[in-house]
Simulated scan of single mutants.
Amino acid sequence: MLPYDIFARTMETPKDFKDDRLDRENFLKFDQIGKSNDYVMSVASRFQLCEPSQVHEYGEATVAVKNNRYLALNGVFPDPMKRYIGFYDFYAKSALDLKLTTYTSMIKYRPEHGQTAHFQVEIYWNGLGSSRDRKECRRQMREAISDGCFGPTVSPEVIDDENLAGPIAALERRQQPVRRLFSAACMT
């Protein structure tokens, strides 16, 4: 994984929003792997999904899988239905540069549900630290990725939806950070 590889984290409602605002803690939530102390967060490769429309298709398909899974388990669709909103991008370095005391972080290729652009940010417990220390490290990881996010790119399917006007308007707009190709020592 190269530091400036770009990944997208898709947003959905209602999960990622609270009081008509993006809830960064839910949006960048790491899911526990079984009963282990290891965690993952799904992301999409922008190397494979170069165009925003491709990321939107990925996001729509992901939400459809979740809605259909709920239907299969409960016999009805969720109420309210999960809806794809759009995505934020971030550089791999946002997830990999943070030096965690209790976890090792990596981004791995993990296709699922027919989505070949699916990757996971994975953090593996190194056996050190208390439960509180591990929780704090996960918070720091969410914060590092959040600080590195740029966008958003909102889906054309929802941009004019009056029910989503508030949450969409409240999304924080961030410019893509400038990549430094040369160190200051090379500049004269």
Rank of each mutant, 00 (worst) to 15 (best):
L98R: 03
G129N: 01
E172N: 08
F77Q: 12
Q175F: 04
Q48I: 05
T104E: 10
K15I: 12
S53N: 06
C137L: 11
D20N: 07
Q54A: 01
T13Y: 13
M41I: 11
T101R: 05
Y58V: 03
T153C: 12
G151S: 02
P111L: 11
E143W: 15
D5G: 08
D89R: 00
R83K: 14
A170Q: 11
D16C: 13
Y109A: 09
F182A: 11
G148W: 00
R9Y: 05
V76N: 13
G166Y: 15
G34Q: 12
A95I: 02
H118N: 05
F17Q: 03
R21M: 06
R134V: 11
P111T: 11
K29F: 10
Q175E: 11
F30Q: 15
K35H: 08
F90D: 00
F90L: 00
E51Q: 05
Q175C: 07
S45W: 02
F27I: 06
E25S: 15
F7M: 02
Y58H: 06
R21V: 06
R83E: 15
Y88M: 01
R174D: 00
F17M: 08
K135F: 11
K66W: 11
A165Y: 13
R69C: 09
L73R: 15
G59M: 03
A92Q: 04
T116N: 15
Q120P: 08
S183D: 10
D147I: 10
K18R: 12
L128S: 10
S53A: 10
E12I: 10
Q176I: 02
K66F: 07
T102S: 07
N26Y: 08
T102Q: 01
W125T: 14
A44V: 12
M11N: 00
T13V: 14
H118R: 06
S53R: 06
T62I: 04
I159N: 09
E12M: 09
T116D: 11
I85V: 09
